[in-house]
Structure formats: C-alpha cells, structure tokens
Simulated assay, not measured.
Amino acid sequence: MNRKNTIPIIDSCSIDLNNKTTIHIDDLKEYIIKHQDMVFPHKHNFFHFVLFTKGSGEHIIDFNHYNIEPYQIYFMVPGQVHTWNFTGDEEGYVVNFSIDYFQSFLLRTDYLERFSFLQGKIEQLIFVIAEQFRKQSIHILEQISTAKAAGQPEDYIRTLLLQFILFISISTEKDHQEHSTPYNHKIFNSFQQLVEQQFKSTKLPSVYADQLFITPNHLNAICKSYIGQSAGEIIRNRIVLEAKRLLVNRNLNINEIADELQFNDNSYFTKFFKKSAGLTPEEFRKQL
C-alpha cells in the first residue's frame, strides 16, 4: 500500500506563505480572511494554537466539536485533523511554529513533551484561560507580534514563545500536578508516548505494562487517576481516532484502512470500529 495515500487531506502550506519562516503569528480575524478557502478537514505539519478574545461558532478538532467562548485557547499538534465553522465575529491570535523550532535552542530536544497541551491529547488541548491570567497572556502574544514585525533576533522571539508556553502551563496545570506524584506522571506520559508509537502493532495493555516494568492493574490505576479511562480504552480510542482520520481520505477503501491499522481482516476492523464509534466505517464516512 502506498504510504502517501494513507494520509488524509493535508494542509501542506508553509508556516508563513510569504517569508518561509518557522514561526508565524497573526491577528485571528486577518488569518481567517487569508485562509477562508481552508474550511475543510485538513492537517498541519506544525504546531498551531489559537486564543479567542471574542467570537462565536465552533471549531472541530479530531471530529470533536467545540463552541467558541472568550479567552478559550486550543493547541494542535502535527497530524491532528481540524476545520472550523465561524460566524465572522472572531478576534484573537493565531500562532504556528515548526516542529523543530526549539531544537537548536534548547539542550533538551524533548522539552516540549513536558507540556500536556502540546501532546495532542483531546482531553487536554482546549481550555479557557482564567481571568487573572488573561491580561498577561495577551501581553506576551503582543510582544511576540511586535518583535516579529520589527525583525528582532529569532532567539528573542523563541524566548517569548517559550515564556508564553510556560505561563500557560503554570496557569492551567498547577492543580493537576499538585494531586499527582512525579513517578505516576512519568509513567502516564511514557505510556501515552508508547501508545502513539505502537498503537497499530500493539493493542494489548499488558504489553505496554511490561515495557514500563509495572503490572497491568497498576497501569490501569494510573490511567484512571489521570483521565478516568483504562489503559485499554486509551489504546482503543487512539486506534479509532486514526481510523477516522484515514476515513477522511476517500481514496482509501475500508480494506486498505484495516490493513494500515494492522487488523487481520476487514470484518473484525468494522466490528471494532462500530463498537467504539457507534457507526460502521462506511456510515462514518457518509456522515462526513
């Protein structure tokens, strides 16, 4: 099966269409006008986040619908599928930056992995900024925009963006971190990374537990303490999500998708998908 055909509709445009830079910040209203022809399910090959200061309508990330509200922020990682249905009154900021934007700047190349909202987990990528943090959030984004427009050194802009990410982390993750142990947090993050790498070939929680040197029961307990789902549910949800992403591409038939996800036969894949999604793959595709 041709690998390039396994990818759904993609937005393959550069971060900045004019300057080919590795970071782009824009006024949300202007960005929507520039990209009004992109209102269809698509992917990015870069990190993307939007902060709404006002607006209505909805945006759709990995087939989940979210109503817009003031000071809502969402983060997307490369590979997620999204589109939007705005009503035209949106205001705010949009920032895109490349996957390797910090790699030459930080000694730890995996530094961004510490931020849960940059890991593409649907339960963590969207939230509303608390009122006491809103003014400072806007201030940092304005600094990035001003520095970018003035042609300031790239490392200075990187520092401002990292400041924003750290500020958002402090304002949103403090309570969760206070109720978790460093060990459990590391295990949970490691499990999520393993699932992301192996979900096509490895579908049993016990195999992941062996790799993490813990028991399946312990793994389940950690997963439930974080997001209320068992390890098996997390694995199944990731497989179904990938199936939905592939179903966006109508050039792929169901047999090819089942093969890509390493199911032994089409019928088992169809039963698996329907049990989790409530629809057969064909019904889901028609719904799209």
Rank of each mutant, 00 (worst) to 15 (best):
L17A: 08
Y31D: 14
V77Y: 05
E91T: 08
F117L: 10
L166M: 14
Q193I: 10
P216S: 06
K174D: 08
E154S: 08
D259S: 10
F105L: 10
I9T: 01
N253M: 02
R114Q: 15
E69P: 06
N64I: 07
R245G: 03
D265F: 05
K274R: 15
I129Q: 10
I7K: 11
N249E: 00
S225R: 14
Y93V: 12
H139I: 06
I9Q: 00
Y226G: 03
G120A: 12
F284Q: 01
C223P: 00
N237Q: 14
Y74E: 11
I122T: 04
F199R: 02
K274T: 13
V207F: 05
Q136L: 08
L118H: 06
G57R: 00
S190G: 10
T22G: 05
E58N: 10
I254D: 03
F284G: 01
Q211M: 15
V95E: 01
L118D: 03
H42V: 11
Q163H: 08
N64Y: 10
D100T: 07
Y226N: 01
E196Q: 13
K135H: 12
N85P: 04
Q119E: 12
G88D: 05
G55D: 00
D100V: 03
S169R: 05
E131M: 12
F269S: 09
S12F: 13
R108T: 12
K4C: 03
V81C: 11
Y74V: 04
I25C: 04
I10V: 14
H44C: 08
A231P: 00
D11E: 15
E233A: 15
E69G: 04
F75P: 00
N45F: 12
D27P: 01
K20T: 02
I170S: 14
I254N: 00
D175Q: 07
L212M: 14
E131S: 15
A147Y: 01
I23L: 14
I170M: 13
L241R: 13
E30D: 13
L261E: 05
H35N: 15
K121C: 07
L279P: 00
F269L: 08
Q103D: 13
N266L: 07
Y208T: 06
I15P: 00
T172G: 02
F164R: 12
E58H: 03
F263Q: 10
C223E: 01
D259E: 15
A277T: 09
E282M: 07
E196H: 10
E260K: 12
G79F: 02
Y156S: 13
H42E: 09
D37G: 10
Q262G: 05
Y101C: 09
N249C: 00
L204D: 15
I7H: 06
T83C: 07
R250L: 05
N217E: 08
F52N: 01
F117M: 09
L118Y: 04
G151H: 04
I165V: 12
K29D: 08
Y71M: 12
V195W: 01
H179K: 14
S230Q: 02
E282R: 07
L288A: 14
E58A: 07
I33N: 04
I187M: 07
F52A: 04
F105N: 14
T109M: 11
Q124W: 13
Q262M: 15
E154L: 12
F86W: 02
I187Y: 00
H65E: 10
